[in-house]
Computed example of a mutant assay.
Amino acid sequence: MQLEKNIVLTLQKLLHKREDAIKQEQEELITKTKELSLNLADITLSELHVIDCIGTHGTRNVTSLSKQMDMTRGAISKICSKLLKREAIEKIHLTNNQKEVHFKLTKSGEKIFSLHETLHQAAEEKVLHFLKRYTPAELQFIDRLLKDIISEL
């Protein structure tokens, strides 16, 4: 039972460190955007994720963003309103449907997306480098363990 308790404590430490890493990544992004004269001092993680979703998948409407991000349409609408005010996204209408509003990144939104991508790639490279110390069998177990943890959350 003691080993299980130690694992729980270690998992809690991991989650706290991950939260700290997310905050640090966000602060790095804010610093870099200030260097590019983009004011994002109070940008939220959800706003970054919407920018990332549009940047990755192209023009999107509220419904497709909602499905892609597993959030309510109301939450996505609020986030998009904030991003419109920040001039990170803009509204467009597709030629075949003038009623439906879609969003695409502006030039500043593209810069934010690019910076965000760069930070994510660096973080991914660190994890991949870290995982090189494990055998294929250990990696399969780690993969199964993480998927099990996610399914329990």
Rank of each mutant, 00 (worst) to 15 (best):
Q2G: 13
L3R: 07
E4C: 00
E4A: 04
K5D: 15
N6V: 10
L11P: 01
L11A: 03
L14W: 06
L15E: 07
L15Y: 13
L15G: 10
H16E: 09
E19F: 04
D20A: 10
D20C: 05
D20V: 02
A21V: 00
I22R: 00
I22A: 02
I22V: 05
E27Q: 02
E28C: 10
I30S: 06
K32M: 03
K32Q: 10
T33C: 13
K34I: 00
K34N: 14
E35C: 08
E35V: 08
S37N: 09
S37F: 15
L40N: 06
A41G: 14
A41K: 14
A41F: 00
D42R: 11
D42E: 04
D42S: 11
I43K: 11
T44C: 05
S46T: 07
L48K: 04
L48S: 08
V50C: 08
D52E: 14
C53T: 15
C53V: 14
I54V: 14
H57Y: 13
T59N: 11
R60P: 03
N61K: 02
T63E: 12
L65G: 13
K67L: 08
Q68G: 06
S77I: 06
K78A: 07
K78W: 00
K78I: 06
C80I: 12
C80V: 07
K82G: 08
K82W: 05
L84H: 01
K85A: 12
I89E: 04
K91D: 04
K91F: 07
H93R: 13
L94M: 12
L94I: 01
L94C: 08
N96L: 06
N97I: 11
N97V: 05
K99H: 13
V101N: 01
H102V: 00
H102P: 15
H102D: 07
F103D: 01
K104A: 05
K104I: 15
K107G: 02
K107R: 15
S108Y: 04
S108A: 13
S108W: 03
S114W: 08
S114V: 09
S114C: 03
S114K: 03
T118F: 11
H120S: 05
H120N: 11
H120Q: 06
Q121V: 13
A122L: 02
A122F: 01
A122W: 01
L128W: 06
H129E: 15
Y134G: 04
P136Q: 03
A137K: 15
E138C: 07
Q140F: 11
F141Y: 09
I142Q: 12
I142Y: 15
I142R: 12
D143I: 04
D143Q: 12
D143E: 11
R144S: 11
R144Y: 14
L145T: 14
L146W: 15
D148E: 13
I150A: 14
E152Q: 15
L153W: 03
L153Y: 09
